[in-house]
Every structure is written in structure tokens, then in C-alpha cells.
Design a protein around this nucleic acid. Structure first.
Length: 120
DNA sequence: ATACTGACTAGAA
DNA sequence: CTTCTAGCCAGTA
């Protein structure tokens, strides 16, 4: 997981996908956290854009449903085809979702730099 | 080139 | 508590 500043947009996209792939099942992270980890703090919108540009052939490898906004709101749910698909995927991993919002964010939130010291 | 949009966020009012 | 503002960056019109 590169912690170096953005080199170019293509690598940035790939880095975003790589980070998302590191999110353990049952945990979630935020767009801003990913951006910050990649050295582009404040580029949260770009992370969202990267997810939007996630190629279909990679959707099986990248758990996009584990990325929510910093409040735990499922802001990307409209990109999963069915309205509650994202919630179903999360709940299948044990994440409690209510009103399109992840509950117990403090316990479930996963920060990229904490991947070694995560306590489930 | 400007203007607006969006799977965002932190801080101010 | 809520809503607003200003940043953020790529893509589109």
C-alpha cells in the first residue's frame, strides 16, 4: 500500500482500489480516510469519483460496499443496482445498517493505517 | 476558457 | 442540534 503522494491519476485510482481491497470483512472505511492515506488529504471527492469509475470487471475484487462516507451513510448505494444491495452486502458481513447508515461506526470503522492493529 | 456536477469533508454560523 | 461555505479534483457541457 503506497503511502507516497499521488503520482498520476491512473495510479491514484489503482491505489484507491488496492486500499479498498484491504478493508477486512465486517469493517468499513471512508472516502476521506482513503484520500488522506494516499497523501491527497481533502481529495475525498476524487476517491468517490474513482469508485464511480471502478471497472465492472473489478467489482468482484473490490468490496466497494465497505466504503461509506465519514458519517457511515451509504452514499454510494445508488450505484449497486438494487436499492438495498449495498446494505445487504454489509449486513451479510455482520455490519448493522439502519436507515442507510452504518451503526457503531466507532467500532466498525477501519482506517488504512490501522490495518495491523485492528480489533474486531 | 468558464460553469457545474459529484459514491466527500472540516469548520463556521 | 442544523445548515452553509469553502476546499478538493476529474469529467462533462
Amino acid at each position: 500500500m503506497p503511502q507516497t503522494p499521488r503520482r498520476n491519476q491512473e495510479d491514484f485510482y489503482l491505489d484507491v482500489y488496492a486500499v479498498v481491497q484491504c478493508v477486512p470483512p465486517g469493517r468499513v472505511t471512508s472516502y476521506g480516510a482513503i484520500a488522506e492515506f494516499l497523501g491527497s488529504k481533502g481529495a475525498a471527492r476524487l476517491v468517490g469519483y474513482a469508485m464511480n469509475a471502478l471497472p465492472l470487471y473489478q467489482r468482484n475484487d473490490v468490496p466497494a460496499h465497505r466504503v461509506v462516507n465519514r458519517n457511515g451513510l451509504l452514499t454510494g448505494k445508488h450505484h449497486f443496482g438494487e436499492p438495498n444491495r449495498m446494505q445487504e452486502l454489509l449486513e451479510a458481513e455482520g455490519v448493522v445498517v439502519q436507515d442507510d447508515q452504518v451503526q457503531d461506526m466507532d467500532r466498525v470503522f477501519w482506517h488504512p493505517s490501522h490495518h495491523l492493529t485492528d480489533t474486531i
